[in-house]
């Protein structure tokens, strides 16, 4: 039987963009989607235990676009997601759970 390393349980939920930690840090703070209630569009993603990953955004006229992919965990704190967005980003980020927030720093690859 294969064994995989897994991220912390608390990461498995729907996260919504909250704010930038600071302009210089490049760190984006996400919070559980449910915390926002009614809001203007926010980038959200769902990380599932079964390695599915769903990224949801809105386009330049507020229309939703959704991308499906799969994630892979690299210890201690990297998540590598195998979907390609229109901007040719491979989603790859370092994360840190801080209370009820998820801090992520994207690693851009082309």
């Amino acid at each position: 039987m294969n064994t995989y390393s897994l991220p912390p349980n608390a990461i498995f939920k729907e996260w919504a963009y909250s704010n930038l930690e600071s302009p210089e840090s490049g760190i984006e703070i996400y919070k559980p989607r449910a915390e926002f209630g009614l809001t203007r569009p926010r980038e959200t993603f769902i990380i599932k235990r079964n390695r599915e990953f769903t990224l949801s955004k809105t386009d330049a006229a507020d229309r939703p676009v959704r991308f499906e992919g799969n994630w892979r965990f690299k210890e201690p704190n990297k998540l590598i997601v195998s979907i390609k967005t229109p901007k040719k980003e491979s989603l790859k980020f370092q994360f840190q759970l801080a209370g009820n927030a998820l801090k992520i720093k994207r690693i851009l690859t082309n």
């Binding site: 009614l38 809001t39 569009p41 949801s56 809105t58 330049a60 006229a61 507020d62 229309r63 939703p64």
Partner: peptide
Amino acid sequence: EDDLLGWATF
């Protein structure tokens, strides 16, 4: 749907 407030066409 999708908790949206609105959308538009260009």
